[in-house]
């Protein structure tokens, strides 16, 4: 197992390559998912104002 993490002496290069790739890919789904929630919230606000009873506000 230690040998696996050691990567024949290239651990720094191999694992930082994989780590950086993982972080960049993760951001590529987390940011859109976060924006999706924000979009749905904005849509809900917009349509509530449009269709709701304006007199109560």
């Amino acid at each position: 197992m230690a040998e696996f993490f050691h990567m024949g002496g290239y651990a720094l290069y191999v694992w930082s390559s994989i780590g950086i790739t993982a972080v960049v890919l993760l951001l590529n789904v987390l940011l859109p998912l976060q924006k999706h929630r924000e979009m749905l919230r904005r849509a809900a606000d917009f349509h509530e104002l449009e269709g709701g009873n304006h007199d109560t506000r």
Partner: peptide, 14 residues
């Protein structure tokens, strides 16, 4: 290249 070639598995697909 020893184990350093394993970088290929993220480098080339990217």
């Amino acid at each position: 290249q020893g184990d350093s070639f394993r970088i290929i598995y993220v480098h080339v697909p990217a």
